[in-house]
């Protein structure tokens, strides 16, 4: 029961955090010496055009009025209009956010599927050949620059081997002859729902390289975290007790030890998930992935403040919820953790 009161309290706190973030980003955006009205009308504007745009955008009003206007719209689900594309931001986000989420989720899945087993085995067989190889690659994964790795992978799997597509979410053929019906915006999910196998396979092939490029850092981190905490857990008396009780080593490592060791790994994975939402920009650029990173980078370059503020808010929402989610997961895994 107190778990629910805890969650409600955290949600109330989340609202406070979001309000503060909206205030800070909004005012920072307005303090920067640039003229949104000039950006709105485009190149070579006449002074009267700028003046009209200023009134249209409400930029002539006091700052706090502008903020209240902005928040009022926000509560009605209107994130504003992009100065650069002149599209409603919500519409832009509907295409960009799922693209990034899909990429990041597949990357995280790779980090879990590859990183955790390697970390477990590496920790269990400390100083073995497997451990040394794993540690070499996990250090490499953490330190190789993303853009360089992305280019190398393209060179290898596209140019040399011809196994995987170069970039984008789908190939032109698919877009023309097997178009994806947009339901969730996740192509892998949408194609599955509609039974569009051709497009599913195409989307899957397209996501492998960018997702893996994105995943190298979290994989390296996951391996190292899991290995370290496995080594610590395997020294515990209850592991000896389980082995003495005759339980098979597989169970000891992947059930009895892992459930204890995985908690710090989950925290790291959750945080790198949020980081990747906007941090995936290099990967998105290299693989021409139409995602949030590309969107917000363009917005920053063209001082598209409504977009910057909206994306900041969205990422904050993810950040707050991931953290809450992590705390709940931790409490579920470790009964000694109480949510208070």
């Amino acid at each position: 029961m107190h778990r629910w009161t805890y969650i409600v309290r955290r949600l109330i706190l989340a609202v406070v955090v979001l309000l503060s973030v909206s205030v800070v980003t909004f005012f920072i955006a307005r303090v920067v010496p640039s003229d949104p009205a000039a950006a709105w009308v485009g190149s070579h504007p006449k002074p009267d055009q700028i003046a009209r745009a200023r009134i249209e955008l409400g930029l002539d009003k006091p700052l706090y009025v502008q903020y209240l206007m902005y928040m009022n719209k926000l509560f009605h689900g209107d994130l504003g209009t992009s100065v650069q594309t002149h599209h409603p931001i919500l519409m832009d986000l509907k295409t960009y956010l799922p693209a990034t989420l899909e990429l990041v989720l597949v990357g995280m899945l790779m980090a879990i599927v590859i990183g955790i087993p390697l970390g477990v085995l590496s920790g269990a067989k400390k100083e073995s050949v497997l451990d040394h190889v794993t540690r070499f690659f996990s250090v490499a994964g953490v330190s190789i620059p993303t853009f360089w790795l992305g280019l190398l992978l393209q060179l290898l799997f596209f140019s040399k081997l011809g196994l995987l597509p170069l970039n984008g979410r789908l190939s032109v053929d698919t877009t023309l002859y097997h178009p994806v019906t947009q339901i969730t915006g996740f192509y892998l999910v949408d194609t599955l729902i509609t039974g569009n196998w051709f497009a599913f396979k195409d989307a899957l092939l397209h996501i492998i390289l960018p997702a893996f490029t994105l995943a190298t850092y979290p994989i390296g981190l996951t391996v190292r975290m899991t290995r370290t905490s496995m080594i610590e857990v395997l020294n515990q008396k209850y592991i000896l007790a389980a082995r003495v009780a005759g339980l098979p080593e597989r169970t000891v490592l992947f059930v009895l030890a892992l459930k204890n060791a995985i908690i710090p790994t989950i925290t790291v994975l959750g945080l790198s998930f949020v980081y990747s939402l906007t941090g995936a920009i290099l990967v998105e650029v290299i693989f021409s992935w139409p995602g949030l990173g590309t969107y917000v980078t363009n917005a920053v370059l063209s001082l598209d403040f409504p977009v910057i503020v909206s994306v900041t808010l969205i990422v904050t929402v993810f950040y707050v919820f991931i953290n809450l989610f992590l705390d709940i997961v931790q409490a579920m895994l470790d009964p000694r953790v109480t949510l208070q």
Partner: peptide
């Protein structure tokens, strides 16, 4: 073993 609290898996 000696210390049962350490010999039982906490999770």
């Amino acid at each position: 073993f000696q210390d049962p609290s350490a010999a039982l898996n906490p999770v």
